[in-house]
Design a protein around this nucleic acid. Structure first.
Lengths: 244, 244
DNA sequence: TGACACCAATCTGTGCAGGCATAAAAATAA
DNA sequence: TTATTTTTATGCCTGCACAGATTGGTGTCA
C-alpha cells in the first residue's frame, strides 16, 4: 500500500509509536533516522511533518523529534485509527468508534429521511431487500458487504459530511465483528426488519421512524460487540484550556 | 501564528483552496509555487504533504499538484474546520458541527455519569454553580468561557477520546454564537437549570438524567442557532465503495 | 564560598540550491 | 488501433548556511 518512500517511513514510525515500541517522551534524531532507515533527509522531513499533523511527534530545534503521548494523537486521523486497531489498543479504539456511531447514526437516519436525494433512498430500499435475501440464505460474506454499504449510504444521505466521513472506520468495525465471529451464523430476524424499516422510513421521509429503528439497530449492535473491550481502560484527556 | 515557513505556505494554499479562490481541478506546479511564494522546494514539498493529508490536494508525477473538491476534504481536520469557518461555507460548517454535537453530547453526558473521575465531577459542579452566578448577573463574557469549559469537561469526562477531541470546534461554535449576538442578553433560566441538572446527575452517577438534561440543552441550542445556516446547501458525498 | 546573571559554544531542526532518477502523459511510429 | 519514444514534473538525494534552544563556563557581587 505504501508506495512512496516517505509513506513507508510514516508507516514505520507511526505504527511503532502507537504500538508503544517507541515510548512517549522518546527523542528521535533526524540524522539517526536517515541512517537507520537508509533514506534521505527530505524523506524523513516530509514523514515527520505528516506524523506531526497526526499529533504523534513534535519536532523542535536543538532537541530533536519528541514522541508524544496518546492524549495528543488525533483520534479522527485515518492513520491513527488504523494503527490503533492493529495494536493492543484495538479494544479501546473499537469502543470509541462504536460509541460514536451509536450517537451519530440515529441522527443520520433522521436527517436522511428529511434530505436524502432520491437516488440514495432507492439504493437503501434495494440494499435492504438484498440484505433480507442473502441474510436469510445465511450468506454472511455478502451480507456483510451489503450491511457496510447500507450504513455508509445512510451516513452519506444525511448530507452531513462529518457523518459521511465515518463510514470507513465504521466499515472496519463491521468487518472486525464478523472476522471475530461475533455475528450469529445468520442475521437475526429483527435486525433484518429494522434495516428494512429504516430504508422504508427514509424512503417515506418519516424521520421519527428512521431514527427509532436505527436506534434499535444500534442497541443490538452494541450488545453484540461490547464484550470485545471488557476491561479496556478509558482514556481521560485533559480538557483543552479555553483560549481565545 | 504560522511561525515556520512551511506552515505559512500551508496556510496560504489551504485557505485559498477552501475559499474557492483556487478551484477544484486546478493543477499547481511545484516550480511555480517556488517562484511565486519565493520559498525553496523543500518548504513547498512539506507543505504539499500536509495539504495532501488534509485531502485538499493530490500530487502525482508528470501531472503536478491537483486541487481536490470538497468531498475529499477531511472534515475533522482542524485546519479544514478553521478555513471553512472563515469562508462562505461558514454556515454549512456550523451546521455539521452542531448536528454532530447534538448527537454526541447526550451520550457523552451519559458516559460521564458512569465513568468520570472524581475531579471532573467536582469541576462540573463548580462550573455549573459559577454559570448560575455570572449568568444571573448578565456577565455574558465570563458565562461564555464557563459554558465552553463545561461542555469540554463533559466531553473529556466521557472517557472517549473521540468525543473529547470535539471540544475545540464546539468551543468555536459557542464563541461564534455569542459574537453573532444569537445569545439572549442573559441566559435563559431553563438553560441554567439544565446545566445544573447535568452536573448533578453526573456527580450522582445518574446516567439517564444526565442524558435527558443534556438533550434538553441541545434542543434549545439548536433552535437558537439554526437560523445561521438557513438555505446553506447540504453536502452529499458519494459513499465510499466498500473495498476489502 | 556560593548564588546569580550573562555570554559563548554547541547541537539540531529549518531552509536553500541544484543534481539525477523515475513514472506517467503525450506524441509519434508501426 | 497498438507499440514505442519523447517529454516533463515529481520523487529522491546531497552539500551548505542559518536560526534558535540548551548547556556550560565566566565573571560579578554578596
Amino acid at each position: 500500500m505504501a508506495t512512496s518512500l516517505h509513506a513507508h517511513v510514516v508507516e514505520h514510525l507511526g505504527s511503532r509509536i502507537i504500538s508503544g515500541q517507541i515510548p512517549r517522551g522518546s527523542i528521535i534524531l533526524a540524522a539517526d533516522l536517515e541512517q537507520k532507515l537508509q533514506v534521505s533527509r527530505s524523506v524523513i522531513r516530509e514523514a515527520i511533518r505528516v506524523l506531526a499533523q497526526c499529533g504523534l511527534v513534535n519536532s523542535t530545534k536543538r532537541v530533536g523529534i519528541r514522541v508524544l503521548g496518546a492524549e495528543s494523537w488525533n483520534p479522527y486521523d485515518d492513520h491513527v485509527i488504523r494503527w490503533r486497531l492493529a495494536s493492543d489498543q484495538k479494544g479501546a479504539q473499537l469502543r470509541s468508534l462504536t460509541e460514536l456511531r451509536i450517537s451519530v447514526e440515529p441522527m443520520a437516519a433522521e436527517l436522511a429521511a428529511e434530505f436524502a436525494p432520491e437516488a440514495m433512498r432507492k439504493e437503501l430500499m434495494m440494499l435492504s431487500a438484498q440484505m433480507n435475501h442473502y441474510g436469510r440464505q445465511g450468506d454472511l460474506r455478502r451480507f456483510l458487504e451489503l450491511d457496510i454499504r447500507f450504513h455508509a449510504v445512510v451516513l452519506a444521505a444525511s448530507g452531513n459530511e462529518m457523518f459521511a466521513n465515518l463510514s470507513t472506520p465504521i466499515g472496519a468495525i463491521l468487518r472486525g465483528r464478523t472476522e471475530l465471529g461475533l455475528m450469529p451464523e445468520r442475521p437475526h430476524e429483527e435486525a433484518l426488519l429494522w434495516h428494512q424499516s429504516v430504508a422504508d422510513a427514509i424512503s417515506n421521509s418519516d424521520a421519527a421512524s428512521a431514527r427509532k429503528n436505527m436506534e434499535s439497530i444500534m442497541r443490538r449492535t452494541h450488545n453484540e460487540i461490547c464484550s470485545l473491550w471488557d476491561g479496556a481502560p478509558r482514556l481521560f484527556v485533559n480538557p483543552a484550556k479555553s483560549s481565545q
